[in-house]
Design a protein around this nucleic acid. Structure first.
Length: 432
RNA sequence: GUGAAAGUAGCUCAGUUGGUUAGAGCACCAGAUUGUGGAUCUGGGGGUCGGGGGUUCGAGUCCCCUCUUUCACCCCA
């Protein structure tokens, strides 16, 4: 009986695994050089941990299970709650600010589609304990530091940035009540994805007053931070968050990534816990889903029973990113090759043990080395060496018996040289 | 969860209006007179045609169900 892989999961064959590792190694390398430390938590948590916050979207997508003790558990659909839990547990002893990153394996019971699977990897970086927008800028820089390093340019991707706090202040100055905000966010979040008339229709369901609606539409069509002031008179609160957003863009300029970033008032984000600056990273052609996103979540730790500590962070998934890199031809360079430094061949059966012995000595010295499992003809063994992309092939034959010499063949040029066995071994052990 | 399209060797696909033992290229394995690989040539393995049921003398081909993938909702990594 053949059993297929589970819906929405992936098998990683060696070539796929090589690419996955290449992506994840890049995430880790860039995180570390930006000053973040790695952490991880369990792959399942109490179900209620994910129900507390973040809203229905994620809860509906949970894989949940019950253990034998009747505990209600869930496979983690995101790692931020775990982060909040871990930080809260040791909040008094952790040096501030806390700059942590993780590459968790996550699970969401969504209907799979291109760039959207049920099991995936996500790069998360977070800064906890800094309320200045410097932290937001640093987090955005870190994401771009990676994306830029692997070859993406401002022609390929864009970070669309806005602020929930600002949007709240602006909407309130239009006359929207605080209780209406959350529902309205969900509608505004769709503005970039819906045709104009469909969006207006949805808006009309939320906001009955036509004047208010007109003002909201006007506000949502501004293309720069400066235009906001032209559109309506700013309250003190609004002015403050507009200024904050301006400072963020200034900082991004100082950090040298301004050309990747753009203000977009339509970025609201679906998750309920965002409080301030929010952003999403898209491919410039906007043909794919969001590559990543994040923002400020100043109330989350408190909601998990900790102290009120500001926090900001983002996540980038591996699925959409891999598709984008594939399209840009940046993934093909990562074709994995099983490259051997040495392949040890023997001309005659009597040298087989010697070949194995030499192979193991090379390996112990740190070289990648292989030998033929069968006592096949030399031609066969060379073919094997070639299959395994060996750089050099060592041939053990009569030269060893007669003069204690090995034949070393360069597989690229075909050139061969004779080297004394003991000298070769000494050289190999020392140079590695 | 709702709607739509697709599914034939490991991969990319062909398969005539239903008609014998289902094909190609690539990949894989093995040979080509035994101390030299990449090329070429020859041969081989591998498919219950996604799975199940039905119509028919006969189904890869038509119908139904189901699974998976892709697309649109939904939502975001």
């Amino acid at each position: 009986m053949k059993i297929p892989p589970v819906k929405g999961t992936r098998d990683f064959y060696p070539p796929d695994m090589a690419r996955r590792n290449w992506i994840i190694d890049g995430w880790k390398r860039v995180s570390l050089r930006n000053g973040f430390e790695e952490y991880d938590g369990p792959i399942f948590e109490y179900l209620k941990m994910f129900q507390i916050k973040s809203g229905d979207e994620i809860v509906e997508q949970l894989f949940s299970l019950q253990d034998r003790g009747g505990r209600e558990l869930a496979l983690r659909p995101e790692i931020t709650p775990t982060l909040a839990r871990m930080v809260n547990q040791q909040i008094n002893s952790l040096p501030k600010p806390i700059k942590w990153f993780s590459v968790p394996r996550l699970f969401r019971a969504e209907r799979p589609q291109r760039g959207r699977l049920r099991e995936f990897f996500q790069w998360n970086i977070d800064i906890i304990g800094v309320d200045e927008s410097t932290a937001d800028a640093e987090v955005i820089f870190c994401a771009l530091d990676y994306l830029r390093e692997i070859g993406l340019t401002p022609d390929d991707i864009v970070v669309k940035i806005s602020s929930r706090e600002m949007l709240a202040a602006l909407l309130q100055s239009i006359g929207i009540g605080e209780s209406e905000l959350e529902g309205l966010y969900l509608v505004l979040d769709k503005r970039n994805r819906l045709p104009a008339d469909a969006f207006e229709e949805m808006l009309a369901e939320r906001v009955a007053d036509e004047d208010k609606r007109k003002k909201i539409l006007e506000l949502m069509s501004v293309e720069s931070i400066g235009q906001i002031g032209d559109c309506l008179e700013l309250t003190d609160a609004a002015k403050e968050s507009v200024d904050e957003l301006g400072r963020l863009f200034e900082l991004l300029g100082v950090m040298g990534v301004a050309d990747f970033c753009r203000f977009d008032i339509g970025i609201v984000r679906g998750l309920a816990y965002y409080t301030g600056i929010v952003y999403e990273i898209y491919d410039k052609a906007s043909e794919l889903r969001a590559i990543g996103g994040g923002g400020r979540y100043d109330d989350l730790l408190k909601q998990f029973g900790g102290p009120a500590i500001p926090a900001t962070g983002f996540g980038i998934g591996d699925c959409v990113l891999a598709i984008l890199l594939e399209e840009k031809g940046l993934l093909q360079k990562q074709l994995p090759v099983r490259k051997l430094d040495y392949f040890v061949a023997c001309v005659d059966k009597v040298h087989r043990e010697g070949a194995i012995k030499l192979t193991m000595k090379l390996r112990s010295a740190g070289w990648t080395a292989g030998f033929s499992y069968k006592a096949a003809k030399l031609g066969k063994q060379l073919k094997k060496a070639d299959n395994q992309s060996a750089k050099k092939c060592i041939i053990i034959g009569r030269e060893l018996v007669e003069k204690n010499e090995l034949v070393i063949k360069d597989m690229a040029t075909g050139e061969q040289e004779l080297v004394d066995y003991d000298k070769f071994l000494t050289k190999c052990t020392e140079s590695k």
